[in-house]
């Protein structure tokens, strides 16, 4: 089983890296680009077959390490 974890900055947290990417996209001529926010993505291979317990285990991993919940949100997706 595999968990896909996406960590993103919370609303209201300034993201200067996202802003720099946004400017670079505009410089490349991409029109209609609004705000860009940079995040992180993890794939975690898991033993076991119960998606519900995998979900709660990975959420605990996010709380303890993968995300800094002062500034970041996380989303967990379990794939069988």
């Amino acid at each position: 089983m595999k968990a896909r974890v996406t960590v993103t900055l919370k609303d209201g947290v300034l993201d200067p890296q996202g802003q720099a990417i946004e400017k670079a996209l505009q410089n490349l001529g991409f029109s209609g680009v609004g705000a860009v926010r940079q995040g992180r993505y993890f794939e975690v291979d898991l033993n076991g077959a119960d998606p519900a317990s995998a979900q709660s285990r990975v959420e605990e991993m996010c709380e303890k390490l993968l995300a800094n919940t002062v500034i970041e949100n996380y989303a967990v997706e379990i794939e069988n």
Binding site: L14, P16, N68, V70, I71
Partner: peptide, 17 residues
């Protein structure tokens, strides 16, 4: 210390990058 929760808040990338 911030990551360990012993002090509040966090240190982000410098504003000027």
């Amino acid at each position: 210390l911030c990551e360990a929760g012993l002090l509040p808040g966090t240190l982000m990338r410098n504003a000027g990058l």
